[in-house]
Design a protein around this nucleic acid. Structure first.
Lengths: 191, 191
DNA sequence: CGATAAGTGAAACGTGCGTTCCAGATGATT
DNA sequence: AATCATCTGGAACGCACGTTTCACTTATCG
């Protein structure tokens, strides 16, 4: 069904699968959207059954959609770590992360009780990357060392998401958050 | 029914109403609890119909329960503002607010699409109190003046809630949050 | 152009939940 | 104790969703 090993797959089915994925992705970024199978199906003019069948269930569809959004973010975090100092990577990435989350209005908030394996894995990658940024910035002397890097990472993850979920989205709030957070993270004898 | 003007109200109905309220309040603080009418009813050995009828609907019941939790918090904020400096009030209250929210594990997180008038009003009161603390602390020279007090209040409200919703609850995270937040809120030329 | 298997979607189904009904139980009043 | 309005809760109802069914459609291939 989802990936029948030796069977033929019709071209229209492949196309519809892609359409469903795009519709789900679009709905994820719409604040008040219903996020039901019916809503996704209607958005592309397909039947609900077709949308569900293409992924084997609603959860799998949303997992694919969220993963697709998250993947470039994770890649960006890794690229920044490789390209520049941890301090600069942290500052740049936090700003971009906030912009991303604001644009998609908290990709998290309506995903309460769902099981999204790929998304969970990507989120773990993201946490690891931020953790590396924090540890690097500590070594570079730009982040205080009296806090556990793990705890700091958790703190950033949770608060950034909360700020991004503000309704309506506010650039002023995001800026204030970054200002307070980064100042608060500086060593005590900072410039 | 809920408050029949001239009619008699039986004592057992009054008692059951109180029991339902207590059960709902208890469930609000249990992380994974179902928060359904059925669950509330079973907790006190009543029928679901009785629980709902006592308040005229599930929303009203939860509104009463959440309000009951929130009311002493709001009063405490007001008391602190009257008793001491805004700076001290802000510091003390933030710590207490975080402890409260952690204890009740984010009273917010399962209240998504519900209409809770009394709770909303209390939250507005809370926001106003924190705003007064921020404004006062600015005048006292302990909080930076380059951020809008309104925005700062929103920032605190959203991030504090997010920190309190951490699963499992972590005192270390809460402490780190307070440290970073309060340091980040200090004037730039701080001690 | 058949023939055949894959794909489709309206309708049916199952589940979970809040709410409402109503026949019987119970507290209040005389 | 008798009477009666109030209260109760199991059952039925309505609604929202995700999922499954199945008669029908359509792409694909010889």
């Amino acid at each position: 069904m989802s990936t029948p090993a030796g069977a033929r797959r019709r071209a229209d089915a492949v196309r519809n699968r892609q359409l469903a994925l795009e519709a789900a992705t679009a709905l994820l970024s719409e604040p008040g959207a219903a996020l039901t199978v019916e809503a996704i199906a209607k958005k592309v003019g397909l039947g609900a059954a077709t949308v569900v069948r293409a992924f084997g269930g609603k959860d799998a569809l949303l997992d694919a959609a969220v993963s697709g959004l998250l993947e470039p973010v994770v890649r960006r975090a890794r690229d920044l770590l490789a390209e520049t100092t941890a301090t600069r990577a942290l500052h740049v990435f936090l700003r971009e992360l906030l912009a991303f989350q604001t644009a998609h209005h908290g990709v998290n908030d309506r995903l309460g009780g769902l099981d999204l394996p790929a998304t969970t894995a990507l989120r773990a990658d993201l946490v690891r990357a931020v953790e590396e940024m924090i540890e690097g910035a500590r070594r570079e002397g730009t982040v205080r060392t009296d806090l556990d890097p793990r705890v700091t990472t958790t703190l950033i993850g949770r608060t950034a998401l909360a700020v991004a979920q503000a309704q309506p989205p506010s650039q002023e709030l995001a800026d204030a958050y970054l200002t307070v957070l980064l100042d608060g993270l500086r060593p005590l004898n900072a410039p």
